[in-house]
Computed example of a mutant assay.
Amino acid sequence: MPTSPRASLLLLAYLAFVSLGLPDGLLGVGWPAMRSEFGVPTEAVGVALTAGTAGYLTSSLLAGFGIARLGVGRLLAGSTLLASLALTGYALAPGLAVVVCCALVLGLGSGAVDSGLNAYAAGAFGPRHMNWLHAFFGLGVALGPLIMTGAIGAGLSWRWGYGLVAAGQLALAVAFALTVRAWRDRGPVAGRPTPPASVPVRQTLRLPAVWLGALGFGVYAAIEIGAGLWAFLLLTEGRGLGAAAAGICVSGYWVSLFVGRVVQGVIAERFGSGRVLWGSLFGLAGGAVLVALPGPAWLAVAGLAVIGFAAAPVFPLLTLTTADRVGGAHADRAIGVQIAVAGLCGALGPTAIGVLLGRTSVEALGPALVVLAVALIALQLAAIRRRPV
């Protein structure tokens, strides 16, 4: 097990994961007012989202390769400052063009923080904290709309919502800067030799386990986001559930994901990451089968709840066990690749499922999730078998 993390670093890590989720929630509530002020169509938000995704994918990939050179502390401090500046840009933006540029910068900052923190946590924190960190990301996504709603409800401009979060990010950047030295030591992992300071990049990229693991992350992201995105359509058009009830059930899916990370973090700490991870992978497949089975709405709802609870620890535990698959010397870089592929497939996977549903029927969601769940199990098996000696 990793050594116990310092309380101050653990607190900063939790706050950082909350901050990662905040901007996602701000845009959804703030966009109607932003669109009206800028005089642009509703669909123009897609340009900003595309820019943000491009920045996120780029920095999350590069961050894994830059940790050895910059150090985790400097990477987190600089990237959080970059995110704060981007959010300040949102608050001061005179038009859409500036928002798009700020979205790109925000993506660059957020991707590096996400990749850097996951790489650090994989070596320094146990499964309980790893799961709880990702649960706190969901908390940030939930708090974002409340902050923006509160600002607009108080008669303030949407710019205040971004300004408040920018101030919080700036404070977090200062905290990271003041603790740069403390982030250097992640603590040794029992039973595993200390890895060399660095290995050639080409050596990392040539490992089949790196790419098999990254594909696993991509498939997982497609399952998690795809299930949440298309569940409402299945329940209303396919299973005859009313819109209000279906909306509550979809919210329940995301709640089960949050609760699962909190609960299974404790379970993984006690019974081991490997057992919980494999149980979750097969639980995902079981939940997908329930969604795929023809039947009443409650059967699909139960399947979605199982998927949410089972999926909860998969991303954190796959990250935590990266070194077991690729070796400690390659772990930081592999995590960067994994985060980038997950971000890419988190966008492309649900889109592909949507195309499938449009060309067939909404009932194709369940079978699609079954295929993806089985593929995830197969990729995990292949990654373990191809790990370096």
Rank of each mutant, 00 (worst) to 15 (best):
Leu381Gln: 13
Val180Ser: 00
Pro2Met: 08
Trp278Cys: 01
Ser59Gly: 07
Glu43Thr: 14
Met130Ile: 10
Pro5Gly: 11
Leu318Val: 14
Gly349Gln: 10
Gly55Arg: 06
Ile147Asn: 06
His129Trp: 06
Thr58Ser: 13
Trp298Tyr: 06
Val219Arg: 03
Gly336Val: 12
Trp158Ser: 05
Gly218Leu: 10
Ala214Gln: 10
Arg181His: 11
Ala209Ile: 02
Val189Arg: 15
Gln380Arg: 13
Phe176Glu: 02
Gly354Lys: 13
Ala311Phe: 05
Leu372Glu: 05
Gly252Met: 06
Cys249Lys: 00
Gly286Cys: 12
Gly238Asn: 12
Cys102Ser: 10
Gly213Cys: 11
Gly327Arg: 12
Gly274Phe: 02
Ser60Val: 06
Gly328Asn: 10
Gly150Arg: 07
Thr319Tyr: 06
Ala151Cys: 14
Arg181Trp: 00
Ser273Lys: 13
Ala175Ser: 15
Ala342Val: 02
Trp183Asp: 03
Gly168His: 09
Ile384Tyr: 08
Leu376Gly: 07
Pro350Glu: 08
Gly55Asp: 01
Leu381Met: 12
Leu22Pro: 01
Gly155Asp: 13
Thr236Glu: 11
Pro23Phe: 03
Trp132Lys: 04
Gly163Val: 07
Ile223Phe: 00
Leu156Phe: 12
Leu75Tyr: 03
Gly73Ser: 11
His330Glu: 10
His134Phe: 02
Gly328Val: 02
Thr53Gln: 12
Ile147Cys: 04
Leu229Arg: 14
Arg385Met: 05
His134Ala: 03
Leu11Tyr: 08
Gly216Val: 05
Arg184Cys: 00
Val266Lys: 09
Arg184Pro: 05
Leu212Ser: 06
Arg6Lys: 15
Thr149Cys: 00
Ala124Ser: 15
Ala142Tyr: 03
Leu277Thr: 08
Arg275Trp: 11
Ala375Glu: 10
Leu87Arg: 10
Arg239Val: 03
Pro294Asp: 11
Thr3Leu: 11
Cys345Asp: 06
Ala227His: 07
Val141Trp: 01
Ala151Trp: 01
Ala197Phe: 01
Gly73Arg: 12
Gly228Tyr: 09
Val371His: 06
Gly150Met: 08
Leu108Tyr: 04
Leu10Val: 11
Ala122His: 09
Arg159His: 08
Leu215Ser: 14
Ala305Phe: 14
Leu233Glu: 13
Gln169Gly: 00
Thr3Cys: 04
Leu15Asn: 06
Ser115Met: 12
Val99His: 06
Gly328Ser: 14
Val370Asn: 05
Glu237Gly: 07
Gly295Thr: 15
Ala151Ile: 01
Phe232Lys: 14
Gly366Phe: 02
Leu317Ser: 08
Val355Pro: 04
